[in-house]
């Protein structure tokens, strides 16, 4: 096991290599303040993030995906982060859990610094022990991208075009 600060530094490196951004913060309050500073439109939040924040717009339960399509800023929470690859692990069993991370333009993912693991193998070990989490689990590494047209790397295709990870100390 690496020291906490080393792990966070390595995570930041991996995330930057995948064109994501890290911002350190101490509370969910900071996450919220950052989110509202980004756009005039109110941030949408996933059910997991709503538990922490108790504010923001939740997707509509009956039509979660259509109700928030193309919103500017979204907030969600990761189960853990992987230092080796700069990834965050999102556990999203139902479409309502996924709506925010799928369809907003700028996605903010909050993760507790203690939950950064060394390598991908640790993340997989964690997942293998959580049958319910594995219903729909995604390691997200940076914003969505394509290089399908003349190999030119374009960030932001059908998922978010910006990804910020809020590491909660």
């Amino acid at each position: 096991m690496m020291a906490l600060s080393d792990r966070t530094a390595l995570f930041a490196e991996g995330l930057a290599a995948a064109q994501g951004e890290l911002f350190p913060c101490t509370s969910w309050e900071d996450v919220w303040r950052y989110a509202v500073s980004l756009s005039d439109e109110a941030p949408v939040v996933s059910p997991a993030a709503y538990e922490q924040l108790q504010r923001g717009a939740l997707p509509d339960v009956n039509d979660p995906l259509r109700s928030i399509a193309d919103r500017a800023v979204g907030i969600t929470e990761a189960a853990l982060a992987v230092a080796e690859t700069g990834s965050v692990l999102l556990i999203e069993p139902a479409p309502i859990d996924r709506a925010v991370s799928l369809l907003t333009h700028h996605l903010i993912v909050a993760v507790t610094e203690q939950d950064i693991v060394d390598e991908l193998a640790d993340g997989f070990r964690w997942l293998a022990r959580q049958p319910r989490a594995a219903a729909y689990a995604t390691f997200v590494t940076g914003p969505s991208r394509t290089a399908d047209i003349e190999r030119s790397l374009t960030i932001g295709v059908q998922g978010p075009s910006r990804l910020s990870v809020a590491v909660l100390a």
């Binding site: 991996g14 290599a17 995948a18 080796e84 690859t85 700069g86 990834s87 991908l120 193998a121 997989f124 070990r125 997942l127 293998a128 049958p131 594995a134 219903a135 729909y136 689990a137 995604t138 390691f139 997200v140 590494t141 940076g142 914003p143 969505s144 991208r145 290089a147 998922g159």
Partner: peptide
Amino acid sequence: TWADAERQLQLLPRSATAQTLSTYTTCITG
């Protein structure tokens, strides 16, 4: 096993697109 899936991921994105990991690695159960 899941451990084997992780072994595959060490090799796949690096060999395919020279990425450490692709943007989305999604696992769906049921």
